[in-house]
């Protein structure tokens, strides 16, 4: 045991982390060629002219949430980042898919909190507005979300596990992660989130010329996941410890 632990790693082994081809591909000189081209058809379109929603995948294969919970969460997400004249929103980006997967992985510790607070939310909506959240008008939904956000729903007796503001912040945080995070985790479908921010995308290197193009508004957005590159380990340390990964969670 002690002997195993004392085995050292040579510098050569360290450098094996990336192959020669991989190293060459990320030298700044090479970056210009790749980044001057859009990664895929449709990338680089003005998000103001929204893609047809039909083009955007809307996965609904639940792994952890119940169908009712998913409906309520999706209705919340639809108000937090709505689809509107500026383009699609959190629902279209599959933020729910991100959250559903994460609740079986990194966010597993928050699964119960979601269940209890979603139930409290519907009790609160029924008591205050006469119907569960999904059946309210969008104005009443927004009014409810404002009450959650400000903590006003806390003292309603509906049974939120803490302040309604904490629950709101949790849902909002995870919605933002599902909207703006790497698509590897199941959200940001069609790079909707990155288009909204006008984020020019994940690149492995950005030359001075790229930066100048960006500043001149001439750098076409790159639309790919960090893990489209083979050079990166997909599993996190925790996933590795648990043995294998099916997908990002």
């Amino acid at each position: 045991m002690a002997e195993d632990q004392r085995r050292t790693i040579s510098r050569r082994d360290l450098l094996k982390g990336v192959g020669a081809a991989g190293a060459a591909a990320i030298l700044p000189g090479k970056v210009d060629e790749g980044s001057a081209q859009p990664a895929s058809p449709g990338a680089g379109t003005d998000p103001g002219r929204a893609r047809s929603f039909a083009e955007v995948p809307r996965p609904r294969r639940l792994e952890n949430l119940t169908a009712d919970e998913a409906d309520t969460l999706e209705a919340i997400m639809a108000r937090l980042i709505p689809a509107d004249d500026l383009g699609p929103g959190a629902v279209e980006a599959g933020a729910l898919n991100y959250l559903d997967r994460a609740l079986g992985g990194f966010l597993a510790g928050e699964r119960e909190e979601y269940g209890l607070n979603l139930a409290a939310l519907d009790r609160y909506c029924l008591s205050s507005r006469g119907a569960p959240f999904v059946e309210l008008s969008t104005t009443d939904q927004d009014s409810v979300l404002i009450d959650l956000e400000g903590g006003s729903a806390t003292g309603s007796g509906a049974g939120f596990t803490g302040s309604s503001a904490s629950f709101f912040a949790m849902v909002k945080g995870h919605t933002w992660q599902g909207m703006f995070g790497d698509p590897y985790y199941g959200g940001n479908a069609g790079f909707i989130g990155w288009d909204l921010l006008r984020y020019p995308g994940v690149r492995l290197g950005v030359s001075a010329a790229d930066q100048q193009r960006l500043e001149a508004g001439e750098l076409l957005p790159e639309r790919r996941s960090a893990y489209d590159s083979e050079m990166f380990e997909k599993a996190t340390a925790m996933q590795r410890a648990q043995g294998g990964v099916e997908h990002g969670d």
């Binding site: 790693i9 360290l14 982390g17 990336v18 992660q177 703006f180 995070g181 790497d182 590897y184 985790y185 994940v202 690149r203 492995l204 960090a226 893990y227 590159s229 050079m231 990166f232 380990e233 996190t236 990002g248």
Partner: peptide
Amino acid sequence: TWLTRRDFAPDEIR
């Protein structure tokens, strides 16, 4: 432990 370049994905979530 040792970590290498393969562990350093440009991944904001992680």
